[in-house]
Every structure is written in C-alpha cells, then in structure tokens.
C-alpha cells in the first residue's frame, strides 16, 4: 500500500503544476499586474511610478511565463509563474498583496470553516443514510413516495433561499439564534446551529435520493434474497447486510470531500459572517489578490488529491477483496 501511496503522490505533482498553470493563465488573462497594483494602491492619485514600484517589490515586473531576455534556464525560471509557483510545493504561500502572511491566515481561518463543515458532514451523513434506509424500508409505500417528492422539492430550491428563509424564520421572527456572527469555544454554538442546519437541509434532497438508489440497487442482489430466504427480518437484512455492502459507493462520495471540508463554504460563510476560508477566497477574488487565489486553488487541488487517495485506502477497509499495489 505504501508504494501505491507514494506513486499516487508523485502523480499528483504534474497535476498540481497543471492546475497552477491553469489558475495562473486564467487569472492573468483577466488581471494584469498593473491592475493588481491599482487595486491595492487605490484609485486616486496613483502615479505610474507608484505602480512600477509596487510591481518591482512583489516581483510582478517580470514576464509572465517566458523571459526572452534571460539566458538558458533563466528564460523559464526568471518569470512570475516560476517564482510564484515553486515555493508552494514546500507550502510557502508567501504574503498577500496587502502584506499579510497567507499561511498564518489560512491556519486561523481553517477552524471556523471546519466548525460548520464538519458537523454538516457528519450529522448530514447520518441523517441522509437514515432517511434513505427508511425510504427503502418503506419502499413502494406512501412514505417512500412522499419522501422522494420531498427530496425532489428540496433539490429544486436554491441554497440561498434556505439561508434567507432560515435567517428570517429562526432568527428574525422566532428569535432563537443570532442571525449571523461567530464566537469562540462554547459561545460559537449559538452561531453555528442555524448554518449547520441549513447546510444539512441544502444537500438533503440530492444525498438522500442518491443513497436510496444505492440501497435499492443492493436490495436486488442475490445475497439479499439469500438472507431473506434464511428467514431474517427485513430490518436485519437492511441494516446489517445491505448497509454494509452499500458502503463502497457511499465512501466514494464521502471520503473524497473530507479534506475539502477545510476550505469552507463560500455562500454560508458570507451570509452568516463566519470568518472561514470560503469567505477568504471570495475576498481575495474580489480584491484581485493573486497570491491568495493561487494559494487557495493549490490547497484545494492538493486536498482533493489527498481525498482521492484516502478514498482508495478506505476501500481496502470496507472490501477485503481490494488490494492497493
């Protein structure tokens, strides 16, 4: 397994370079270093000299991808792309355009993002699986029918709607929890209840339906018929046999997102005033801070690759037939 993991990690390097190159190209198609300087220096009284000085200080005065004036390898290394990308592979994200240490910012914002994403993930998973199993248990009854109808309805509504209605009902009308904000320690609980609840409801429709489909597929397999023939009750068949065998596709979807939980949610964090990484990324895009955008995209790609590796590893735990070589 170790050799498999090492091999996968090596495969990740060209993928990360590719993602980095793509981000770099897309970003600089829209923004030039001059635009970035203007954004940072303000609109009024900005002189060309000030823009030049800003670019020189941050290394944005060099060519983007190819330096024709440099010699030999310098043609590639003495460029903005190389200088800004290489440090990321050793996790040195550098400083944002307003001079703040990006790694430190990521570290401090990771916890608020996790504080929402982790409960949404764990509680959500439990809720979705439970409801999906119940619908399968009562399949072909009115409970299953109305359950599917409800799922489709939940899927059809925008997450923004849940946020606005949730804030209106729970916070504004009924005064149960604060509309937005964030605290530390136990104080955070009152701020997290609503976003977590909304986070779970937002994804409920699609996840429950998906898990229901997985379970139904398993229900038609021969081992289920055998179990029934043995005289096992439907409850035992479902919770002991079907659930266990349906774990592989569930793991595929669930484990891969675990590392991404650190990156937070753009919309929920913004509306609930949670100072997480989602909100950090949005701010960086709005202020054209390439250093942060680059770091966050790199981090996102890396975590996604880690998620895929973790998924592969998790297969070996739930299915003894799988070996990673």
């Amino acid at each position: 397994m170790l050799s498999y993991i090492i091999r996968r990690l090596f495969y990740a390097v060209p993928i990360l370079i590719g993602v980095n190159l793509l981000t770099f190209t897309l970003f600089f198609v829209v923004n030039t270093p001059d635009d970035m300087a203007r954004m940072q220096l303000g609109i009024k009284y900005v002189t060309p000299e000030a823009i030049e000085k800003w670019k020189v200080e941050r290394g944005y005065d060099k060519p983007l991808l190819f330096n024709s004036e440099a010699e030999k390898l310098g043609k590639l290394t003495n460029t903005i792309f190389f200088e800004k990308s290489i440090s990321m592979f050793v996790f040195e994200f550098g400083r944002s355009d307003d001079g703040r240490d990006i790694a430190r910012e990521i570290k401090s914002r990771m916890m608020p993002s996790l504080a929402i994403a982790l409960p949404v993930f764990v509680v959500g998973l439990l809720v979705y699986i439970t409801f999906a199993l119940l619908m399968v248990f009562f399949r072909a009854t009115y409970i299953d029918f109305w359950g599917v109808v409800l799922c489709v309805a939940l899927m059809s509504i925008s997450s923004l709607f849940y946020i606005i209605v949730g804030q209106f009902l729970v916070s504004k009308l009924w005064h149960w929890v604060p509309i937005s904000g964030y605290g530390t320690g136990l104080d955070a609980t009152k701020f997290l209840v609503l976003p977590v609840l909304i986070g779970i409801i937002t994804s409920a429709g699609s996840h429950i339906r998906w898990y229901r489909t997985i379970f139904l597929e398993e229900m038609n397999k021969e081992y289920v018929r055998t179990a029934r023939a043995k005289g096992l009750s439907e409850r035992i068949v479902l919770f002991r046999h079907v659930l266990k065998n349906a774990l592989i596709p569930i793991l595929t979807g669930a484990v891969v997102v675990v590392p991404l939980l650190f990156l937070g949610s753009l919309l929920v964090e913004s509306f609930f005033g949670i100072p997480g990484l989602g909100s950090y990324t949005i701010d960086a895009i709005n202020s054209q801070d390439f250093a942060i955008v680059r770091a966050m995209v790199f981090l996102g790609s890396m975590l996604y690759i880690v998620g895929l590796i973790l998924t592969d590893i998790s297969y070996t735990f739930v299915d003894p037939r799988i070996r990673l070589t």
């Binding site: 509309i179 509306f271 005033g273």
Partner: peptide
C-alpha cells in the same frame, strides 16, 4: 465593529437593536 458582508443580516440585526 462586526464584519457583515451581506445586507440582509445587517438590516435585520439593526431592526433587532444589535
């Protein structure tokens, strides 16, 4: 000073006296 990026929560919290 609390950071409030969206106008809806800002407005509602004002009405609540916060």
């Amino acid at each position: 000073y609390t950071r409030e990026k969206e106008s809806i929560p800002r407005w509602n919290k004002f009405l609540q006296g916060y």
